Computed example of a mutant assay.
Amino acid sequence: MNLDKSALDVLKETSRTFYIPISRLPAGLQEAVASAYLCMRAIDQIEDHPTLDNAVKARMLRQISLVLQAGDRGFTAEDFRPIFASELAYLEEVTLRIDEWLSYAPSGIAPRIWEAISTMSDRMAHWADCNWEVHTQTELDQYTFSVAGSVGLLLSDLWAWYDGTKTARIEAIGFGRGLQSVNILRNHSEDSTRGVTFYPEGWTNIEMQAYSRRQLELANAYVASLPETSPALDFCRIILMLAHASLDAMQHGAEKLTRSEVLELVQQATKVS
Results as ranks from 00 to 15, higher is better:
Asp4Glu: 07
Lys5Ala: 12
Ser6Lys: 01
Leu8Val: 06
Glu13Ala: 12
Arg16Val: 10
Phe18Ser: 06
Ile22Val: 02
Ile22Ala: 04
Ser23Ala: 08
Ser23His: 03
Ala27His: 10
Gln30Val: 06
Ala32Ser: 03
Ser35Leu: 13
Leu38Gln: 04
Leu38Arg: 14
Cys39Asn: 13
Arg41Asp: 01
Arg41Ile: 09
Ala42Lys: 03
Asp44Cys: 09
Gln45Trp: 05
Gln45His: 12
Asp48Met: 01
His49Cys: 11
Pro50Trp: 15
Pro50His: 12
Asn54Lys: 10
Lys57Ser: 11
Ala58Trp: 15
Arg59Asp: 13
Arg59Leu: 15
Ser65Phe: 11
Leu68Arg: 10
Asp72Leu: 08
Gly74Cys: 11
Phe75Gln: 13
Thr76Ser: 12
Ala77Gln: 12
Glu78His: 11
Glu78Trp: 10
Phe80Cys: 13
Arg81Ala: 13
Arg81Glu: 15
Pro82Asn: 11
Ile83Gly: 15
Phe84Trp: 11
Ala85Arg: 14
Ser86Tyr: 15
Tyr90Asn: 15
Leu91Met: 14
Leu96Met: 09
Ile98Tyr: 11
Glu100Arg: 12
Trp101Ala: 13
Trp101Val: 06
Ser103Lys: 07
Ala105Asp: 01
Pro106Cys: 13
Ser107Val: 11
Ser107Phe: 14
Pro111Cys: 02
Pro111Trp: 00
Ile113Leu: 06
Glu115Cys: 01
Ala116Leu: 09
Ser121Lys: 02
Asp122Leu: 09
Arg123Trp: 07
Cys130Asn: 05
Trp132Ile: 02
Glu133Phe: 11
Glu133His: 06
Val134Asp: 00
Glu139Val: 04
Gln142Tyr: 12
Gln142Asp: 11
Phe145Gln: 07
Phe145Trp: 15
Ser146Asp: 13
Val147Asp: 08
Val147Phe: 06
Gly152Pro: 14
Leu153Asn: 06
Leu155Glu: 08
Ser156His: 15
Asp157Ile: 10
Leu158Trp: 08
Trp161Gln: 15
Tyr162Leu: 11
Tyr162Gln: 15
Thr167Ser: 14
Gly174Val: 13
Gly176Tyr: 05
Gly178Glu: 10
Leu179Asp: 01
Asn183Ile: 12
Leu185Val: 08
Leu185Ile: 10
Leu185Phe: 06
Arg194Leu: 07
Thr197Trp: 04
Tyr199Met: 03
Glu201Asn: 14
Asn205Phe: 01
Gln209Cys: 04
Tyr211Thr: 00
Tyr211Met: 10
Ser212Val: 01
Arg213His: 07
Arg214Leu: 06
Leu216Gly: 00
Glu217Trp: 05
Ala219Tyr: 07
Val223Tyr: 02
Ala224Tyr: 02
Ala224Phe: 03
Leu226Ala: 06
Glu228Ser: 02
Pro231Thr: 03
Pro231Asp: 00
Ala232Trp: 10
Arg237Lys: 04
Ile238Thr: 09
Ile239Pro: 01
Leu240Gln: 03
Leu242Ala: 02
Ala243Thr: 00
Ser246Arg: 05
Leu247Ser: 01
Ala249Tyr: 01
Gln251Glu: 12
His252Thr: 15
His252Gln: 12
Ala254Phe: 05
Ser260Tyr: 05
Ser260Glu: 07
Ser260Gln: 11
Leu263Cys: 04
Leu263Asn: 12
Leu265Met: 13
Thr270Tyr: 02
Lys271Val: 14
Ser273Phe: 09
Ser273Ile: 09
